[in-house]
C-alpha cells in the first residue's frame, strides 16, 4: 500500500514580471520503510518537491496524500534535514536536539533520556552541554540527524544533507543514516546530485528533468545493492553498471532539454 502518494503535482513560482514552472505533473507513490532518492541537476525542482512534502509550501495543482489523507489535513510528523545543520548557535546541543519536541510541547524527562541515548548512538556521548560551535561539521550534522529522529517522524526528508561535508565524513555519515533508518523502519526521501550516494542508499532512484521539473525515469536498485551497507555498495560490480546507466540517462535528459549548467 502506498504510504505517501503524489498525484499530478505541479508547482508554479510567480514573480512580478513572469512565472516559472518548477514542477510539472509529478505522480509518485512511496511505500512505508522505503528509501527513495531524487536525482537531477540544479534547478530541476528537487528542493521544491521536498518543501511541498514537508508542508512548508503548498503545491499549485495536484494532491499529496499521506495514508490516503490530504497532507494539510493530517497531523503527521516529519523530519527535515538541510544541506547544513542549522543548529541554533545559542542553544546547547541537548536543547538543539529537543527543539522539535519543544515546539510540539512534548519535552519530558523521558524524551530527554531518549535524546541522550540517541546522541550516544550516533557517537556523541557526553556532549549534550556543549555549544554547536565547539563541534566539527560531521558531528554537527549528526546532531541535526538526532534532532530530526527524536520527533519520531513518519517520513524523513533529506535535502543534500551530506553535501557540505568532506568525503570521509560523508561516507561515514551515510552508513550511520542508513543503519538508523533501517533500524527504526523509517521512510526517507533523499534529494541529491551525487549519483553514488543515491545508489548506495536507496531502494528506488527517481531521475528528474529540468525546465520544467518532471520525472524522467524511475530506477529500481537491484536487491544485491539494496541490502549492502552504503560503503560496501560502492565495491559491487553492479554498482558501476548502474552508475553508468544513470549517468547516461541524466546526460541524455540535459541534452534534449538544452538546459544550462549551473
Amino acid at each position: 500500500m502506498a504510504f505517501l502518494k503524489l498525484e499530478h503535482v505541479s508547482h508554479l513560482y510567480f514573480s512580478n514580471k513572469t512565472y516559472t514552472k518548477a514542477l510539472d505533473d509529478i505522480s509518485l507513490s512511496i511505500n512505508r520503510g522505503e528509501f527513495i532518492s531524487i536525482l537531477g541537476s540544479s534547478g530541476c525542482g528537487k528542493s521544491t518537491l521536498l518543501s511541498i512534502i514537508a508542508g512548508i509550501i503548498k503545491q499549485t495543482k495536484g494532491n499529496v496524500l499521506l495514508n490516503n489523507i490530504p497532507l494539510h489535513q493530517s497531523d503527521y510528523v516529519l523530519g527535515y534535514m538541510l544541506q547544513q545543520d542549522y543548529l541554533f548557535p545559542w542553544k546547547r546541543i541537548i536543547d538543539n536536539v529537543l527543539i522539535g519536541l519543544k515546539v510540539q510541547k512534548k519535552v519530558s524527562k523521558k524524551t530527554r533520556q531518549k535524546a541522550l541515548k540517541l546522541l550516544d548512538e550516533v557517537g556523541l556521548p557526553h556532549l549534550e552541554d556543549t555549544f554547536p560551535n565547539e563541534l566539527s561539521g560531521g558531528m554537527r550534522q549528526r546532531v541535526a540527524l538526532v534532532r530530526t529522529l527524536i520527533t519520531n517522524p513518519e517520513i524523513l526528508l533529506l535535502d543534500e544533507p551530506f553535501s557540505a561535508l568532506d568525503y570521509q565524513t560523508k561516507l561515514k555519515l551515510e552508513d550511520l543514516v542508513y543503519r538508523l533508518l533501517k533500524q527504526y523502519h523509517k521512510t526517507a526521501i533523499l534529494v541529491t546530485h551525487d549519483i553514488g550516494e543515491a545508489i548506495s542508499l536507496s531502494d528506488r532512484i527517481i531521475l528528474m528533468d529540468t525546465n520544467p521539473g518532471r520525472i524522467s525515469t524511475i530506477i529500481d536498485v537491484p536487491k544485491v545493492l539494496r541490502e549492502e551497507k552504503p560503503f560496501l555498495v560502492r565495491r559491487q560490480p553492479s554498482y558501476q553498471q548502474l552508475f553508468d546507466h544513470i549517468w547516461a540517462s541524466l546526460n541524455r535528459g540535459s541534452e534534449t532539454n538544452g538546459s544550462k549548467e549551473t
Binding site: A54, G55, I56, V77, L78, G79, Y80, L82, Q84, Y86, F88, W90, I99, G100, K102, V103, Q104, T151, L157
Partner: peptide, 29 residues
C-alpha cells in the same frame, strides 16, 4: 535572519510566534 532556521522550525510545525521566540529574537540579539 537565515530563512533556513525558520525552515527547520516550520518542519516541526512551529507557529510564527514560536519561530520568533526560538530563532528570530535570539539571532537578532
Amino acid at each position: 535572519v537565515d530563512p533556513n532556521y525558520l525552515k527547520v522550525l516550520q518542519s516541526f510545525r512551529a507557529t510564527r510566534w514560536t519561530c520568533f521566540k526560538e530563532a528570530i529574537f535570539p539571532a537578532t540579539l
